[in-house]
Design a protein around this nucleic acid. Structure first.
Lengths: 151, 151
DNA sequence: TATTGTTATACTCTATAACTATA
DNA sequence: TATAGTTATAGAGTATAACAATA
């Protein structure tokens, strides 16, 4: 193989090199996941919001936007799309009428539970081919990546 | 905290649960990285292509599309954008005139080298706050993620 | 006929700026 | 005045379908 430039694996010893490799890996997998997503299912952002609501209960649109690292208008669109599909419900905040509370409907909760396996089918299949150690690495890595995203 | 539904961390014991968590983590970090990218710099896809060319030398557009998991028309756009900026050069394939070979220009190679740290600055900063063990985990995880994307 | 790559077109997702309602 | 959320608009990135050139 022609190697005009130093092998990048040597660059992962530095934070900057690791950042480069990680950025590529994350970008490539995100594109791959998007391609695998069935038409009938949810977008990456919609799925993440349902997931967050399942974890945290009701949240305001603003809190969801901050949590998912998108701007408020983007969250408006995501929540509106979910509401049109009957998966979430917007309620008035009891104390502050500027705010809203977003909550899963029964249908939304069901989708989170029952659709999760189906939506992750491709990735689940790939994961099944990994060793226990590799899966443990990814489990730990996922937590670290979430921490990075939130900082 | 209101917990209407089981904590997802309990679900990571299964491949499907890990797939769900990993998909969220990757999607969120990809959005975050996109937001951090400076205007003057390259898109995620453009950067990945320059990176691949630096690693593998010349590649055909088709090979690049397959490697980066995008459709050929998308790769045409990416390569055209890079060529307009003088970062890559398209050459005729010596044996098959239907094909082309894409190669880094000197300017492109320089950008890969010198711009890498700058483009990953935000992520590098975040990585610096991690322990050695956590960084080692991410290094290993990046390799696994790349393998997943290619399978 | 099959393959490589491009052009044409449309869709999805996101952001910034301006606006409304409430505090 | 400041804050929460929405609407309007634009930009980036991707895909599918149709096409051109070559094998």
């Amino acid at each position: 193989m022609l190697m005009k430039y130093p092998d990048v694996s040597q660059q992962t010893g530095t934070d900057a090199g690791l950042a480069a490799v990680l950025r590529m890996a994350v970008g490539r997998l995100a594109r791959r996941l998007r391609a695998q997503r069935p038409d009938s299912s949810l977008s990456l952002g919609q799925g993440a919001v349902l997931f967050a609501l399942a974890r945290h209960g009701t949240m305001t649109p603003g809190a969801l936007a901050e949590y998912e690292k998108v701007q408020p208008p983007s969250m408006t669109r995501i929540v509106s799309a979910l509401e049109e599909r009957g998966l979430v419900r917007r309620m008035k905040h009891p104390d502050d009428r500027r705010q809203q509370l977003v909550e899963l409907t029964d249908e939304g909760a069901l989708l989170v539970q029952s659709d999760q396996q189906r939506r992750e089918a491709w990735l689940t299949q790939r994961l099944a081919e990994l060793t226990r150690e590799e899966k443990a690495t990814l489990r730990t890595a996922a937590e670290i990546l979430n921490r990075l995203s939130r900082s």
